[in-house]
Nucleic acid binder design. Sequence first.
DNA 1: TGAAATCCTACTACTGCGGTCGAGATTCTC
DNA 2: GAGAATCTCGACCGCAGTAGTAGGATTTCA
Lengths: 152, 152
Amino acid sequence: MRISAKGEYAAKAVLYLSLHYPKVVTIHEVAENHSIPIKYLEHILLALKKAGLLESRRGVRGGYTLARSPEKITVGEVLRVVDGKFSQASCIELDFKDHYACPEANTCGLKQVWQDVQGAVEKILFETSFDEVRKRTLAGVARKGDYMVYEI
Amino acid sequence: MRISAKGEYAAKAVLYLSLHYPKVVTIHEVAENHSIPIKYLEHILLALKKAGLLESRRGVRGGYTLARSPEKITVGEVLRVVDGKFSQASCIELDFKDHYACPEANTCGLKQVWQDVQGAVEKILFETSFDEVRKRTLAGVARKGDYMVYEI
DNA sequence: TGAAATCCTACTACTGCGGTCGAGATTCTC
DNA sequence: GAGAATCTCGACCGCAGTAGTAGGATTTCA
């Protein structure tokens, strides 16, 4: 019942790209800044690119940037790519065609609970854009006072 | 980002006990009714007992029952016992003493997102009692006003 | 005493997650 | 065109946690 390391990495990376949008930054730079294993991050960014969230440029001066502006990318979208669905329990999953996998699903009062949880989670994740996360991050930095940690 | 099979088993078992409260029912009966491996269910019920949620009687005519009435047991309590805490991401976990494990936690705008999610999940799980789940099960009907579940 | 049940420890098989490796393809700069 | 920088991609690996099993010890009731 937790977000995977992969999901956290992905979110941090996209936040970093949001802070530098629309500049192109290298995997290396992202990995350095967040202490993420670089070879692992490669896979993650590649997946996000294939999902249409990021754009890349190869070769010298290459790197990644967001495919859309930060306010058009939500935390939920990013997590969905790397962590898959947010199904909270097997009993509300659907099988091959449109039917609940759990035979008791129609009467079991727990189904409602799992759906409520899933809905609440998705509501937050899909309604929070990276522009908002970016603003909160900058606000946090400003409160600290001493340095501007992120160069923009 | 999902509830474990163990968590689902535990919730189903407690629901079953709620439906028969205050009758004492055997592990065997619960396992049969929900197609849960009996030897596995033993562990789960034992853990719930040790956590103070269930009571048991050994020997012939023994079995389990709730330690309190269904309205005094929440889904969250049950899941916490078998699945541990609901920390959504490592960056909001606390280390040995009172400090965030993640060094960027104070400035990272993601922390708030993870906390929002965790809060929303806990609110639902800890405010839903098994008496309510029991009623919904008996009604076999969806409630009004539940969350819209996003299409996946 | 014997059957029915929980209690308890130990073990196992498997899956997925986190991470690594090495080579290939592309692009820029000189 | 050479070479460096950078993304692309498939294969691989170790570990921890999950799900489940085995078997016996203990308690209780008739």
